[in-house]
């Protein structure tokens, strides 16, 4: 089981990780061996097994629709790398992601 350098680069861009060339080489070989290792799960026939995403059986946990105090704008922005006292500042983007 091996992954191509190109594939690793694509994953890095999906994960928003800038990797230097040497990092990319090392990552390619290491991911290859790790993926090879985890692939041993293929030995198991799990066709009839329901996935288990979470150890809890709990269901229906809700809160009431009651307003709680928010943070002050100063607290909200206190750790922002760039801010103007009202908003977080980031390099130019156009439009909202719109929560599509």
């Amino acid at each position: 089981m091996s992954i191509s350098r190109q594939e690793v680069a694509k994953v890095a861009s999906l994960a928003r990780l800038a990797l230097a060339d040497d990092e990319l080489d090392l990552m390619t070989s290491q991911l290859g061996s790790i993926v090879g290792f985890v692939s041993q799960l293929e030995e198991l026939d799990t066709a009839a097994v329901e996935p288990l995403a979470h150890p809890l059986d709990a269901k229906n946990v809700f809160r009431d629709d009651v307003v709680k105090p928010s943070l002050s704008t100063a607290e909200a922005l206190q750790s922002a790398p760039r801010q103007d006292g009202e908003c977080f500042l980031v390099p130019a983007v156009l439009g909202d992601s719109g929560a599509a």
Binding site: I3, V8, V11, A12, L14, A15, R16, L17, A18, L19, A20, E23, M27, Q30, L31, I34, V35, V38
Partner: peptide
């Protein structure tokens, strides 16, 4: 993210993103 995370964290983010 490339500068802020260490090698092991990046490895796991890459592995999880891939999987």
């Amino acid at each position: 993210r490339g500068e802020g995370f260490g090698p092991e964290v990046k490895r796991r983010i890459m592995l999880g993103t891939y999987a």
